[in-house]
């Protein structure tokens, strides 16, 4: 049979080499993920810095062609902020209530299972399909025009399932003792949920909402079909085409002039900065309230 191992130091060379080889491959895999990330962030910062000036934040592209220098993304930043705000106002209440239904009321009922399944499916809807849906419903059937609001509707469809999932997780973390203590005091179920359960889960829910906002803020495809493209400032999200940072980048990048491409890079830089800010704040909220959660 196999040699009684007298020397402990030996593991067959083949096994050792294989182990090292896999280790090398695993390190390589991580490097392969980091390389594009670093390259992407570096180029965005490098090229984006060129037009990261006051004009960019104060001016629109009204009356400017791609080859012209100057101009800015004021109209786009305004548009993005308004659209994301409306998206949240539409999506968060629906998503929160749906999460409450799943955790507090649904139980193991058939409806709850079906809803839960379709929430999962809904997270997989391609963003362009959400845009097509709003196009078909809002613009083609109800004959409404392009507007920031239409864009917000399409973003809401993308935001609802993510917020439901994260809120659901947070509500599940609320200890049952709290609910029972409140019921025991004779507090009706809805008041228990509104004044005991939801406040306890609030920091986690806020984190989830902010991450979802950061997520939809970068969506471009549905906006192309719903807010269209404009170079002018339009502060009214309910009428007429509106700008947005993603569509601004799309528009400027499609223009081969260097001035336009520079603006696209700066747009990308600003978009990433805003998204990172949201991510950061979301994580800070999560961290700040972690101890009380336990």
């Amino acid at each position: 049979m196999s040699s009684p191992s007298t020397s402990l130091g030996s593991v067959s060379a083949g096994r050792k080499i294989k182990d090292r080889l896999v280790q090398g491959l695993v390190y390589l895999a991580f490097a392969l993920a980091v390389i594009p990330l670093v390259s992407l962030l570096w180029t965005v910062v490098k090229h984006g810095a060129k037009r990261f000036d006051a004009d960019f934040f104060n001016r629109s592209m009204n009356g400017l062609a791609g080859k012209d220098a100057g101009g800015g993304a004021y109209h786009a930043i305004i548009g993005t902020l308004e659209q994301v705000l409306i998206t949240s106002l539409v999506a968060v209440p629906i998503a929160l209530l749906a999460a409450v239904y799943l955790v507090e009321y649904g139980g193991r009922s058939r409806l709850a299972k079906v809803v839960s399944f379709f929430v999962d499916v809904m997270t997989g809807i391609p963003s362009i399909v959400a845009g097509l849906f709003v196009l078909a419903l809002w613009l083609l059937t109800l004959k409404m025009g392009f507007s920031g609001f239409a864009g917000a509707l399409s973003l809401a469809i993308l935001m609802i399932p993510t917020v439901i999932r994260s809120a659901e997780e947070m509500l599940k973390l609320v200890p049952n003792d709290l609910r029972e203590a409140s019921f025991a005091l004779g507090v009706p179920r809805w008041r228990t949920i509104c004044f005991v359960v939801l406040p306890t889960a609030l920091p986690g829910i806020i984190t989830g909402v902010m991450l979802a906002v950061a997520r939809v803020m970068g969506e471009t495809a549905p906006l192309l079909l719903t807010i269209f493209i404009t170079k002018a400032i339009n502060t009214d999200p309910f009428t007429g085409p509106q700008g947005s940072l993603p569509t601004f980048i799309w528009d400027q990048a499609a223009d081969p002039n260097t001035n336009a491409v520079d603006r696209a890079w700066t747009g990308a830089l600003v978009l990433i900065l805003i998204i990172m800010l949201f991510n950061l704040v979301a994580r800070l909220v999560a961290r700040a309230y972690k101890p009380t959660g336990r």
Partner: peptide, 20 residues
């Protein structure tokens, strides 16, 4: 020491120790 070998000796591979 396992007979005359130190399990924590510098040249000893823990993998070989666990087989033994």
């Amino acid at each position: 020491m396992l007979d005359d070998e130190d399990l924590y000796g510098p040249s000893v591979d823990p993998v070989a120790v666990r087989r033994t």
